[in-house]
């Protein structure tokens, strides 16, 4: 997987976010402040534009540009969280021109741990980590990772939120999918799609 592959991954994810933005906002209006879809759409569109403009040459550089752009453009908690995921993953990949599936799995595991540390969430707290963790564990099989993310996101539905604004709702947060877990699933579905086309 080279820089081109990573750019296709992130631009494919941006298209998925664009397509699903209304659903993400709907999920967020149930338990959050109804801005996740529009925030993520703004952020991922900015990532596509930044990648076009800066043309990063390595997989790590692609992820660093994308992560920095998300932190500065999303405007909600998803910005620093997804931004940290991509930046730490990118840093872990270093300046290699090509990376294999196992290297990506390890780098993403580093990124996911950084997200956990930043947000302070534990498994089952109804956050994006509930989709990210099983997805990374299923790598390097990208299709399996996408399925694991989707199952992880689905499994957040009955949970009670323990982080962020949704946690103020207590038991009223039960019965809704976590929007961050839904977005994390789109990221891994995009990885599976681009892998299948490669």
């Amino acid at each position: 997987m080279d820089a081109g592959f990573f750019r296709r991954w992130l631009t494919t994810a941006a298209l998925a976010v664009e397509r699903e933005a209304d659903r993400l906002t709907e999920l967020d209006s149930a338990i959050g402040d109804a801005d996740h879809g529009s925030n993520m759409r703004r952020g991922t569109a900015a990532v596509t534009a930044a990648l076009d403009k800066e043309g990063p040459a390595t997989p790590g550089a692609v992820l660093l540009v994308a992560g920095r752009t998300l932190v500065s453009t999303v405007g909600g908690a998803a910005g620093p969280l997804f931004g940290t995921l991509l930046r730490r993953t990118g840093k872990a990949l270093g300046d290699a021109e090509r990376v294999g599936g196992e290297e990506l799995r390890q780098a993403l595991a580093t990124g996911v741990e950084a997200v956990a540390q930043l947000g302070g969430a534990a498994p089952g707290d109804k956050t994006m980590l509930d989709a990210l963790r099983p997805a990374v564990e299923a790598l390097p099989d990208a299709a399996a990772a996408a399925r694991a993310a989707a199952r992880g996101a689905e499994a957040t539905v009955p949970l009670r939120a323990r982080k962020g604004r949704a946690s103020y709702l207590g038991e009223r947060s039960e019965g809704h999918m976590d929007p961050g877990a839904a977005s994390a699933t789109l990221l891994f579905e995009a990885l599976a799609e681009v892998t299948a086309d490669a």
Binding site: R68, V71, G75, G76, A77, A78, G79, P80, L81, G83, T84, R87, A114, L118, G119, G164, R165
Partner: peptide, 15 residues
């Protein structure tokens, strides 16, 4: 103040 304000500052400091 809250949530993303705190997380964004932390993410920036980490860089």
């Amino acid at each position: 103040d809250l949530g993303s304000a705190v997380l964004t500052v932390q993410a920036m400091l980490a860089e």
